[in-house]
């Protein structure tokens, strides 16, 4: 293992495909995030749609878990429930032992769009959270400046968001979410709107960043490469109604780089994942299930 850390290209990287149903969460009481039998239902003009169907999962402290699935499979809805932005129809979501009923500052979120406050400079955007939580202006700006250095945007501290590129804006959004030192960081396709090159750089940045912060991370994406590259565990969701179909431990060594993307074992795993997703995607396309 230790030797491999220096050479992630070695084909013997122990990628495992763990085909196991979600374990009952009572077995892991120390989990940071515990989703138990969660269902979320949306009202639509003709009845209701089940977005998330009896999902149970647990995320351990410090773990990086990706949720992957075809579009419309309910992965963002599941993430929103962890953020307290979506109320359970049935079941519950516990973060750090407390049920999620509304957003909490110990849970940070990064969206697909940066959603920076356009009237605030980079610095003040990042300082927003600490200020909202009652920190002094000086303290909040000090936190912001540290994070700005960390994301490498020191020169742009007093720039307004619209003057920055998409990738820079998203880096600010990540820094802003980290400013409250969240226990949990939820990321909803954060690199989905970026071009391929920027996306690759952002992935590398996130890998580096991950080793410097203590947050538990849940990452939603439809990009299987991105999921395997970044995470400790990949949860594959079925077509709507959303269910967890597979729980894959990537088991790749850390620190990691994008070099693993050409690893043969990785490719085999990826093929399995893609087949699974393709089948699910087709199902989603064919069935538009509504319950009245």
């Amino acid at each position: 293992m230790v030797a491999m850390m220096h050479n992630p290209l070695r084909p013997t990287s122990p990628l495992r495909l763990v085909d196991a149903p979600p374990e009952p969460s009572s077995a892991v009481p120390e989990a940071t995030i515990r989703v138990e039998n969660l269902s979320i239902v949306f009202d639509v003009p003709r009845g209701q749609v089940i977005a998330v169907d009896r999902v149970s999962l647990a995320v351990m402290p410090g773990e990086f878990v990706s949720l992957v699935g075809p579009s419309g499979c309910g992965k963002s809805t599941l993430l929103n429930a962890m953020a307290g932005l979506e109320r359970p129809f049935e079941g519950e979501v516990m973060v750090a032992g407390k049920p999620m009923l509304a957003p909490r500052p110990d849970i940070g979120m990064v969206f697909q769009q940066p959603h920076l406050f356009p009237w605030k400079s980079v610095r003040r955007n990042i300082a927003h959270g600490p200020r909202a939580l009652g920190k002094s202006r000086t303290e909040a700006l000090r936190i912001a400046d540290d994070l700005i250095d960390m994301i490498g945007l020191t020169k742009f501290a007093s720039a307004y968001p619209h003057t920055l590129s998409g990738g820079m804006q998203q880096r600010v959004a990540i820094a802003r979410a980290l400013a409250n030192q969240p226990r949990v960081l939820l990321m909803d396709e954060p690199f989905g709107a970026l071009d391929a090159q920027t996306r690759a750089v952002m992935q590398d940045n996130l890998l580096e960043l991950r080793d410097r912060i203590n947050a538990t991370i849940v990452f939603v994406t439809h990009d299987i490469d991105e999921a395997i590259l970044l995470s400790d565990r990949v949860l594959i969701m079925s077509a709507g109604p959303g269910r967890i179909l597979r729980d894959l431990s990537a088991g790749l060594p850390r620190p990691r780089s994008s070099a693993i993307l050409t690893d043969p074992a990785y490719l085999a795993l990826k093929r399995d994942c893609l087949d699974l997703i393709r089948t699910e995607g087709r199902k989603a396309f064919e069935q538009m299930e509504t319950v009245t």
Partner: peptide
């Protein structure tokens, strides 16, 4: 923008 409101909510804005 509802996204701005959500982002502000997540940051603990009173």
């Amino acid at each position: 923008d509802r996204g701005l409101v959500r982002a502000a909510l997540m940051l603990g804005t009173p």
